[in-house]
Amino acid sequence: MPPPEHVHWLFASGFLALGLFLLAEAVVGREVWRKRRWRAYLWPSTMFLMGLGMWPVMAFFTSSTLHMLAHGAWAEVMMLAGAAELGLASGKLRSPLWRLAIVLAFVVTGAALLVHEQNDWFFQRSAFLHHLLGWTFLVAAVFPLGRALRPRSAVFASGFALAFVAVAVMLYSDRDVAPVFGHLSPMAGEPHR
């Protein structure tokens, strides 16, 4: 099993790719971005595959029921959101309500991050990041919601993209038990790097 931060970095790469695809779309505009048809499928398929890749984490990471359920919830909502956006991009789904799937994904992801972290904010770096990530997802859910209601708004589109970039940066910052702001609980074990 790789250390947790390696897994977080792997998924950080996915979130960074998502953020950059969406940022490019927000900058050049949806019409220009979708002049090549495959680009419309780019971020939803990335999201879907990230959901698929989360299932092995759920299945192999069974050292607590709580973590297993949290990883399962993330896997599911990422697949759902990716699938809904793919369906909309292909024209298979027509109701704009499907755009709320990504809002649901943000809310579930944020809630699961907060619920499954058992320690306080300053217990260790990974605890700090779990809290920060959880609240980021919950607060940033306003961007996909705004994007669903106002699809042409550059503010919501950019905010949505930057939320993924921010999440990627946070995940890249993850290290197992390194101190936060110089403080490390003596109960958290010895820093090992």
């Binding site: 790469s13 996915g14 398929s45 990335t46 092995p56 984490v57």
Partner: peptide, 22 residues
């Protein structure tokens, strides 16, 4: 390259707990 990136993202990976029996 795009396909490679997507496959890499889907590659199975594990994770460890915050506190567990070692």
């Amino acid at each position: 390259l795009l396909l490679g990136l997507l496959v890499a993202l889907a590659w199975p990976a594990g994770a460890l707990a915050h506190a567990r029996l070692k």
